[in-house]
């Protein structure tokens, strides 16, 4: 069943990210000039300023760096509180904000091995698949 989420940022480059998610792939922009992975999606590379990117596929493996739980309702009841959020270091070195799937903060410890899943969700722009993480 599809889950309601707060709105994504959409637009030419952003749509590509979600399109890949829809295909079950986590891909992020990689600067073709200097090779840096850039996240979140930016207009220009945050290392060399180049504006040309390819979409590099991430393995989907990562480890837990930090986490926090929203207790105050910042999203006007779109999401039932409290809920956990996680900061994952992808195998490729990038830090990625996400949410845990099938575990909670009580189970979390630094360095915990994680693996990508894509969850069926929708926002005001329609259906999409959200990258989330399960315990590896």
């Amino acid at each position: 069943m599809s889950e309601p989420r707060p709105d994504r940022t959409l637009g030419p480059r952003h749509d590509m990210f979600w399109q890949y998610c829809g295909q079950g792939e986590l891909r992020v922009p990689k600067c073709t000039a200097c090779g840096k992975l850039v996240w979140p999606v930016l207009k220009a590379c945050d290392r060399c300023g180049d504006e040309n990117f390819e979409w590099a596929r991430m393995s989907g493996r990562g480890k837990l760096v930090s986490w926090c739980s929203f207790v105050q309702d910042y999203y006007k009841a779109t999401l039932p509180v409290p809920y956990d959020t996680i900061l994952v270091e992808l195998e490729e070195g990038l830090l990625f904000i996400s949410i845990p799937d099938g575990f909670t903060e009580a189970d979390m410890s630094p360095g915990m091995q994680l693996e990508l899943r894509l969850r069926d969700c929708h926002d005001s722009a329609g259906a999409f698949r959200l990258p989330v993480f399960v315990r590896a």
């Binding site: 707060p6 709105d7 930090s66 926090c68 929203f70 809920y83 959020t85 900061l87 904000i97 996400s98």
Partner: peptide, 19 residues
Amino acid sequence: YHPWGWSSQAAHWAMTWRF
């Protein structure tokens, strides 16, 4: 990071402190 329910200044400091 809105789709993941992650926003607010406080969340930055929360993540930082947890680490």
